[in-house]
Amino acid sequence: MPDPVKAGRRRAGAPSKGDLRELKILEVLEDLLAVKSFDALTINDIAERAGLSRASMYFYFSSKQEALVALFARTVEALREKSRAAADDPAPPRDAIETAMRRTRDRWREHGLIMRVAIDQASTIPEIGALWTETAEIFIDAITAILIRAGAADHDGPDGAPAVARALCWMIERSFYHASAVSREALDQAAETCQVVWLRAAGIEP
C-alpha cells in the first residue's frame, strides 16, 4: 500500500491528468459516504460515480480501504499543520487556546463525516490508526506547549503538562466526534465546552 501521508499531500507543480482523476475519486468517495456506509460501499460504486471502469479504478487504488486512507491523509494534513502552528503561536495562552479550538472545530465542521468514518475503521485499517495517532501526538505537543507557557508544571506526573495535554486531546476528539454527527450547533457547543476545560486546566479563568 502507498505511503498514506504522501497520498494525502498535493504534488509539487501543476497537477497531471492522473492527479486530477485521483482527486476526483477521493471527492467521490467522500460524497458517497454521506449516503452509504463504508461497509456497504463497493469499489464499483466509487468507479461508477467517478466515471471510471473497474479496471481503471484499480490503477489508482487497489481497494476502497486504500482510497479511504488517501482521503483521510489529505483531510488530517490540515489538522497537523494547524496543530504545529498552535505549538508555535506566540500569542498569550488564552488567545492561543481560542485559536486552536476554532481551527480544530472548523476542520470538523468541514470534514466531520470522513473523520468519523476513518476513526471507526481505524481498528481494521492499520494505516488509518497510525495516521490518527500521529496527528493526535502533534496536537498533544501543541497543547503541552501552551499549558507550559500558561504556567503548568512540566514533568511526567499525572498532573504534569504532558499528561494533562493527552487527556485534553482525547477529550476533544471524543467530544467533536459525537457532536459533529448531531449538528453544527452541537459541534459549536462542544468546542466552547472543551475550550473552557482547556482554559481551566491552564489555570486561566474562562
Results as ranks from 00 to 15, higher is better:
residue 161 A to D: 06
residue 162 P to L: 04
residue 160 G to T: 01
residue 153 A to H: 08
residue 171 M to K: 10
residue 155 H to N: 15
residue 169 C to P: 05
residue 168 L to I: 09
residue 168 L to R: 00
residue 182 V to P: 01
residue 154 D to K: 15
residue 169 C to E: 04
residue 163 A to C: 05
residue 160 G to A: 05
residue 155 H to Y: 14
residue 164 V to P: 00
residue 157 G to S: 13
residue 162 P to N: 07
residue 161 A to P: 09
residue 167 A to N: 10
residue 179 A to K: 03
residue 171 M to N: 10
residue 170 W to Y: 15
residue 155 H to G: 12
residue 172 I to G: 00
residue 174 R to T: 11
residue 159 D to C: 03
residue 179 A to I: 02
residue 183 S to M: 07
residue 168 L to M: 08
residue 159 D to Q: 15
residue 154 D to A: 12
residue 164 V to I: 14
residue 162 P to G: 06
residue 182 V to Q: 13
residue 183 S to R: 10
residue 181 A to P: 05
residue 159 D to W: 09
residue 177 Y to G: 03
residue 174 R to Q: 14
residue 156 D to G: 15
residue 176 F to P: 00
residue 179 A to M: 03
residue 157 G to M: 09
residue 167 A to I: 02
residue 171 M to C: 10
residue 178 H to R: 13
residue 156 D to T: 11
residue 176 F to K: 05
residue 178 H to E: 11
residue 182 V to Y: 08
residue 155 H to Q: 10
residue 165 A to M: 04
residue 172 I to S: 03
residue 166 R to Y: 07
residue 166 R to D: 03
residue 169 C to W: 01
residue 152 A to R: 12
residue 164 V to L: 05
residue 160 G to Y: 07
residue 164 V to N: 01
residue 171 M to Q: 12
residue 172 I to M: 07
residue 179 A to C: 05
residue 156 D to I: 07
residue 182 V to M: 11
residue 156 D to F: 12
residue 179 A to F: 01
residue 157 G to P: 06
residue 166 R to K: 15
